[in-house]
Design a protein around this nucleic acid. Structure first.
Lengths: 331, 331
DNA sequence: CTGAAAGCGCTTACAG
DNA sequence: CTGAAAGCGCTTACAG
């Protein structure tokens, strides 16, 4: 490029980056030659200088537990990935989608992002440990339950969300609300149990909770219903809050199979909605967690970290909102 | 690192990469020191040498047309993205998810992948033109309809898939099959029209086709039904093949609203399934395009290109299979 | 205003 | 077996 324009590499660099002082005509000539020969500076060479590549990475932890990377109907994480990728490009970065970077033999490239976004880390998540040991900047979406506040984290507002849904269920007529969580030890699953415990304590109730694997999806329905409705009728719930949409779909179907009417006998709602919840009969009330906006905030934070700019903490996201549907609407 | 181990950078490089000849003990010492200080070679410096970063990029063209990057219920592209990302890591690469890289002001990083995968390029797709001009390796999933065979491409088997579905509809009792395509000018939309034209020609029929925007999703239902059932009853179809699952969902619902029974009066099927099709009433027959396997083949091809290894052409993917559901099953 | 020099952190011939 | 030198393609002080 320098040769083609008949100047030194220094001048090319100055001209194209608007640094230093270069005669206007020289800049124009260089720009023209660059356009002609389709010159683009090498991101790698520049990266070596700045030791930043303009790369962000997204690690979606819960997907690692699921058998398929992308469980059907669960659009929450996928919308995060898409929105994060767009958002990154708007900030001048590209987004890598990577699986567990602590596995032996991960590609070097998977560890060369300028900053990482880790959504829903597990308790004492080794990914966070590794990144932190390697002094690689990262931000989590949802805290590591065992290390809350230790790392830059974006509060998903789990507590608020859980209360929002519990209040809605109570308003809709539920007197005894059971909780169905997943088994991943993340803030979402663990935090909601704490919130329910407080909620129940305030009402002098014993919390009804069951944790079932995320990966089982709809299949957990019968087991969950049997668990809550198998024993003492005095202990039967009249509202069930499932953290995942697929669990809620399975629970709703199983309840109906057992002759329990939804919403007449039992209110059902989901935390993170699945597409199924919008098309099932009855349709199921869910929370809208606004994944696009979470992704945007996460990317902004990651960019700040990558560029060594200060963070405003705590970082929070717009609160979840309710999508009220038939499963919690009594006539 | 070299200093820490008391050897030269050359020896470190040799030891860690298994190149050259290094005494076993030296290797061991270097490895130990590396582990102790958590040393990882810089992917950037190495990349500058090899002018490859170990990065692949996925460009999902149809998502660009849609208003949201990740339309709800459409899991095809998302499953491709997830599977491609996993597959890339197995090959020692990381996967970037990028939007249109021809836009002015794209991050340099978005153009520094070793090879690109472009799914469902448009006719004369500027992305392909740009990549090809810049001599950046890429493979398309589905051809550029205007430049078939000009670039490395993975055949999605559109023709086979369309015939598979037409045959199924005919077997299920349809005498007059209409086609609903999207409006993106990609192989999937254009190719299926050609196949239908041939199919109809063989039967002495005039093809019934309408193209409606992908982004409209379910909302197109009434317009499509009105288009096909508004006029001469002799021209009413008794089978509709919608290329997208969301269109099929909308069409099914609209037909039922109009008193057209599915599947009794009208068979409906979808090309690429959406989650809705599995939970609607009636459930809707779809093709399973096996996105995970397509992603895998695409990644393998991209890796070959990145490494300058020869391609075996034509590259093909496992044929689509039918998921037969209620919408094409008459009692 | 412009360019020669050094350096980012590696790898790869090549010399010892 | 080991290391000094050159170089990957840029950027950034610094000298002219």
């Amino acid at each position: 490029m320098a040769r083609a324009a008949g100047v030194s590499p220094t001048t090319v660099s100055h001209a194209l980056n608007g640094k230093g002082i270069v005669r206007r005509e020289t800049i124009e000539r260089i720009e023209q030659v660059a356009a002609e020969i389709g010159y683009r500076p090498s991101a790698i060479a520049r990266g070596l200088q700045r030791s930043r590549l303009g790369l962000l990475a997204l690690v979606i932890r819960p997907l690692h537990t699921l058998d398929t990377f992308l469980p059907e109907g669960v659009d929450y994480f996928l919308r995060i990935a898409g929105a994060a990728s767009l958002s990154a490009m708007e900030h001048g970065y590209s987004m890598m989608l990577i699986d567990d970077p602590t596995r032996p033999g991960v590609p070097l490239s998977a560890l060369s992002a300028d900053a990482y976004i880790v959504t829903d880390p597990f308790e004492n998540d080794p990914v966070l440990t590794m990144l932190s040991e390697q002094r690689i900047p990262f931000v989590t979406v949802g805290a590591d339950p065992a290390r809350r506040g230790q790392f830059p984290e974006i509060d998903e507002g789990d507590d608020h969300q859980t209360r929002l849904m519990l209040t809605h269920l109570a308003d809709a007529g539920a007197r005894r609300i059971a909780l169905v969580t997943g088994t991943d030890r993340n803030d979402w699953n663990l935090g909601s149990q704490l919130t329910l415990a407080e909620w129940c304590a305030a009402r002098g109730q014993r919390p009804l909770v069951i944790s079932v694997p995320e990966v089982e999806g709809e299949r957990v329905g019968d087991a969950v219903i049997e668990h809550f409705f198998g024993g003492d009728p005095a202990e039967h719930p009249d509202g069930i809050f499932c953290l995942t949409g697929r669990h809620a779909a399975g629970v709703t179907a199983a309840a109906i199979r057992r002759g329990i009417r939804v919403p007449e006998d039992l209110l059902v709602a989901a935390g993170s909605g699945a597409v199924q919840n919008r098309t099932s009969h009855p349709t199921v009330t869910t929370l809208d967690l606004h994944p696009e906006e979470i992704a945007q905030v996460a990317v902004e934070t990651a960019v700040r970290l990558a560029e060594g700019r200060p963070l405003e903490r705590p970082i929070s996201t717009p609160p979840a909102t309710l999508d009220v549907r038939e499963s919690t609407t009594r006539a």
